[in-house]
Amino acid sequence: MVDVLGHLGMALVWLSPCWLFIDDQRTAVTFLAVGFWFGMLPDVDLVLSNIDALGIHHHGVVHTILFVTLAAVTVGPLLGLAMRRVFGGTKWFSRRAAARAVPLGVIIVFVTGLAHLFADTLSAPDKSTRLELLWPLVEGPIVYTDVLYYKSFWATIALFAAGLAFNAAFWYLTFGRSGSRAVGDATR
């Protein structure tokens, strides 16, 4: 488990291919700026665990693919509609993106939720509760790579730097060389 900045960095890494699929630079920036915050969504269990009646604990049911999927199909459309309402009609959200706002919201919540779970699987399980990613289908943890120390300062910084670097690289591949879309012109 990395700290907050590391989870946000992992969300940026996982969202970085958006540069290839979103039709203009400003819309991609909006997508990233709104989206990467949802990389913290599974940690809502830290707040919910304070409500004894719910019986929720950190790295429990909220840290599952089931929860991320349910959040994507419920919160995602609301996020997309909110983005269209706030940014639609501005230079920060293209007409094409506004027409696809609901699926964009679903993608944001799903991808960043999975990014959070992935980042948590990288950390030392001896200091933290193991994730049961496939609950209720599979009881117990399915994978741990144990490559990062719990709340490692350097891993957290490295993940955030990687998120920025991935986005810079995808931006350069898509728009950087000529200022207009360099690859993926057929996706416009």
Rank of each mutant, 00 (worst) to 15 (best):
F36A: 03
L41Q: 02
D43K: 01
L48W: 05
I51W: 13
A53S: 13
A53K: 06
L54S: 02
G60W: 00
V61I: 14
H63D: 03
F67N: 04
T69L: 14
A71M: 13
A72T: 04
V73E: 03
L78G: 07
L79G: 01
A82D: 01
F87V: 02
G89K: 02
K91G: 08
K91T: 11
K91C: 03
W92M: 06
R96M: 08
R96G: 11
R96H: 11
A98V: 02
A99E: 14
V102P: 06
P103S: 11
V106K: 05
I107H: 05
I108L: 08
V109S: 05
F110Q: 12
T112G: 11
G113S: 09
H116Y: 01
L117P: 01
F118N: 02
F118A: 15
L122F: 04
K127Y: 14
S128D: 14
R130C: 10
L133E: 08
L137H: 01
G140I: 00
P141S: 15
T145L: 14
T145Q: 08
D146E: 13
L148C: 10
K151S: 11
K151Q: 14
K151D: 13
S152T: 09
W154D: 11
W154L: 12
A155V: 01
A155Q: 00
I157C: 08
I157T: 09
I157V: 14
A158V: 11
A161G: 00
A162Q: 03
N167K: 07
N167F: 10
A168N: 03
A169E: 04
Y172T: 15
